[in-house]
Design a protein around this nucleic acid. Structure first.
Lengths: 174, 174
DNA sequence: TCGAGCATGTAACAAGTTACATGATTTC
DNA sequence: GAAATCATGTAACTTGTTACATGCTCGA
């Protein structure tokens, strides 16, 4: 993940590791944290793989500037094209870079994800009905309030994402 | 995390590793995955630490039943008492077990979390104003649609959680 | 009898965090 | 001249996943 985010940020132009981290914090920081301990090794791997170039700036502060290569750009866009998946909020990370993606693929992926959300909503709704019935049979249903609440959370979550992605697809004013 | 979830599930009564995994999938599976590769070693660690007891059932299927000890119960409840944090959705995991927590601490923690959410909403709202103004200055603001969208996602997310936790605090019908 | 489900486990690997280590530059 | 910020890096550790390995039991 660190590698893709780094590539994505460098897509904008030459950056130092330090700058990459700052940008990540200020933009996707809400759902993605990167530490120097993972960033710097990642940058070195990306250089070794030919996806970034490293330029030493001889300003005595040991600052290095990273730029993306054609290969790196391709690699990043391949990743960006892949279907959106909710795993570890990767879908939000991808969404942040979605301006770089062609409209056609973008729309296809957004709609596919939207369908999976609709699916989730349906599944949660039937589960809710079943659980509610089972709960009615119990004399002490108050003892399961929080246990059951996480199911409701799931439903709210899916609905929120669904509403949000509907806006994305229609490119509504946010 | 696996350790706490395992303890939490065994709080209900004796279970095998296999059962623990199944229960986890069916309940908190939406936001928490556990693999056997992490579960079985975790159970052995918990036994070694005296938090679970292991009972061999000689049913030739090599099934083992785990039960929680007093120490394990205490350890689990200590964890549960700690302030709710959004990190890796730990707050949802805790919420699932919140029926085990005393009302006083529960209410205090829920309210504290609620305040942090309110804080998040405020921060996102001011950020939104600033970014909107900056965006108006640009001729090509459409090129930043998705980049900016994740900020709106953050706001929606906080609002959804806020609404949900309001219900939790008031113990409203879900 | 065959496949699904029950049942446990390990070893190699992946990804990231935390703490430590170092030093320059800018700002007050 | 002290503190904040810029700037990079490593080593040990944490936590978990994936793939593999093994075998029982029950129902169609």
């Amino acid at each position: 993940m660190v590698e893709y985010v780094s590539l994505g940020i460098v897509m904008e132009g030459q950056k130092s590791g330090y700058e990459i981290k700052k940008i990540a914090e200020q933009t996707v920081g809400l759902f993605f944290k990167m530490s120097y301990g993972s960033l710097y090794p990642a940058l070195n791997r990306l250089v070794a793989a030919g996806r970034l170039t490293e330029e030493e700036t001889n300003n005595s502060k040991n600052k290095k500037l990273y730029a993306i290569t054609e290969q790196g750009r391709g690699h990043f866009l391949e990743w960006l094209k892949e279907p959106l998946q909710s795993n570890r909020r990767e879908h939000l990370l991808k969404l942040f870079f979605y301006d770089y993606l062609e409209e056609e693929i973008r729309k296809r992926n957004l709609q596919a994800f939207q369908h999976s959300l609709q699916n989730g909503i349906s599944r949660m709704e039937s589960l809710k009905t079943i659980v509610s019935k089972e709960l009615e049979q119990l004399p002490n249903k108050d003892d399961y309030y929080y246990r059951v609440s996480v199911m409701h959370y799931g439903l709210q979550f899916f609905k929120m994402e669904h509403a949000f992605f509907t806006k994305m697809i229609d490119k509504e004013e946010l």
